[in-house]
Design a protein around this nucleic acid. Sequence first.
DNA 1: TATTGTTATACTCTATAACTATA
DNA 2: TATAGTTATAGAGTATAACAATA
Lengths: 144, 144
Amino acid sequence: MTTSGPAREAWLEMVALFTGEENQQSFLTAAASLALTPSAFRALLGFGDEEAPAMRELAEKWHCDPSYVTGIVDQLEQRGFAERRPHRSDRRVKIVSLTEAGASARQAAKLRLSEPPAALRSLSVADARALRDLLRKATAALPV
Amino acid sequence: MTTSGPAREAWLEMVALFTGEENQQSFLTAAASLALTPSAFRALLGFGDEEAPAMRELAEKWHCDPSYVTGIVDQLEQRGFAERRPHRSDRRVKIVSLTEAGASARQAAKLRLSEPPAALRSLSVADARALRDLLRKATAALPV
DNA sequence: TATTGTTATACTCTATAACTATA
DNA sequence: TATAGTTATAGAGTATAACAATA
């Protein structure tokens, strides 16, 4: 609870950027442009490049109830972005994977959301690079 | 849509910090510790140090319906954090202000949420200062 | 019997519509 | 008549409980 001033101040700047009008709006319009609810859009973004997960694993990852995962995956499936298939050895389990369309929609969405807010765009390339490097240094210092 | 790489990469790092488990959890537990729903907690944080606003102004600021503001302010009032009083000249209008308890709860919550995530805490003071300064430079460059 | 996912149902959050009081 | 806020109500979003299929 007693972190040195500068880190605290830096964090407050980031929070302001993230919670700001510009970023919030950009997220919502990106979701709407795919005709997905914000939750389903977040889910789409949440699919990694790893192994396709079981429904139950998604529930854990997203900290929500399995019944809710059913609804979200239904939505993605209806939009043609995901599909279920039974697990090889245990037919109770259903594996969820992105379709071709889902993977490319996710990719496009990530690109779109990676567009930084105006404040960051105002930095010189050198400054932006310095900023990026400091942030990477910070996250690289973490265990795991 | 075509921002230079480093700014984009810096932004992705920030997004990861913000949407990460650590920060999300910290917000939710801070809200729960005041027995407020996430929305009401956000509202408490959203009160500025400016003039006390009318209900209608809060609805605009929060981009929600006036009827919803009623519910949120009810909640804050029940917790003893806010109070309504009629506008001086127009008795249709209600002015909302934080109570003493509300202001200090807000202050404490802001302090608590300004605690940066572990990654940022790992930076040296010099690095943290450099990071903060770059972010301030970015936001300062904006119109308004 | 225990577990995975779904369906049926209920609860919470937020908005729309009807209403009251004031202008 | 028009506007600020509230109340009544309806619609999303999310969870809990009962269920079917598989282990």
